[in-house]
Write a protein that binds this DNA or RNA. Structure first.
Lengths: 165, 165
DNA sequence: CACGGAATAGTCATACTTGACTATGTTTGC
DNA sequence: GCAAACATAGTCAAGTATGACTATTCCGTG
């Protein structure tokens, strides 16, 4: 949850926004580096409000449905910095679901195993190509994307090595 | 959840076990490649039982508390292979909490930023050293650990590059 | 100017996860 | 020969996450 809160607080620190705006931005620009989902974001915003880390103001534009505009509060800013320091100093093991599958690889017949891993390789390559085609991204996201590419490439190269054995 | 189920089914396919045994093995040997927690495992075992993927038998040894011994069923084996194929073919973006922090790095003063990242670097190095000191691990876990080391090293090397800029 | 599709703005039931807790049995150092 | 530490075997309340769903408004095109 912490990193989700960090993300929302960070975006709100930059600019007060309503839920739709936040989610739209996340879906369109950050989907590759975060897995925060829409419903989760709304729920989290509500929790942040309860904790006093963000403040809500109702707003209506023309006949559009009314919006809740969220703004970061003073204690929200403090919490943001605390979370940022903590997360930036941390290094958790990288545990993607695939690690589990790799443990049991040998339970499949060689043919099938190779087939699955080749599909995986294609997907990794597609992800990488996709990321590298983004026109020099908004600088904030930059580092996260760069790291993502580095990790994906390391994963791909390792996988290619395994396929050769 | 899928990969958690895959892990439990895979362990049970190898040998019928009770909850404590499973959790003990996971904590002691797999903590570096999975994040399945004890309470989660017990809850998941119950769900697997409800779905008929595992069968339970009560057992008692001496005066010890009675145990529920879980064994994989026929349909459990089928499901295991399906999950294995799916996960082995998949390639999700690697989204660790740190990615979010990296996006907001620039919100910290340079000094503090460097300090945090250096702590992170130390932790990455410690993780790597730790993994490399494991005496050639049980072969099943092998690939997952190997990949973990590869990813951690890629992460570390990238971080060192960033620190130099 | 009507109609379909996209944008806006969420909600909700359900499922999943986990820190903290309970409770008994076994071993070990002194 | 007993108290403390450790192993065994879980449970539970509370917190989190999300796919599926609702409902209104706007806009472009025929």
């Amino acid at each position: 949850m912490d990193h989700h809160a960090l993300l929302l607080l960070g975006l709100l620190k930059n600019q007060a926004q309503h839920g739709y705006q936040l989610n739209d931005f996340i879906e369109k620009n950050l989907a590759r580096v975060t897995n925060l989902k829409k419903a989760t974001a709304y729920a989290l915003l509500e929790r942040l409000r309860e904790s006093g880390l963000v403040a809500v103001k109702l707003e209506q534009e023309g006949n559009r449905p009314p919006r809740k505009v969220y703004a970061i509060t003073q204690s929200g800013e403090t919490e943001f910095l605390n979370l940022l320091r903590t997360e930036l100093s941390s290094a958790e093991p990288i545990s993607s679901p695939e690690s589990t599958a790799l443990m049991f690889m040998s339970e499949l017949e060689p043919d099938e195993r190779m087939a699955c891993l080749n599909i995986r390789l294609e997907k990794l390559n597609a992800h990488i190509a996709n990321l590298e085609n983004i026109p020099t991204h908004k600088s904030a996201v930059n580092f996260a994307l760069e790291r993502q590419v580095v990790l994906l490439k390391a994963d791909r190269n390792w996988l290619m090595g395994v396929l050769e054995r």
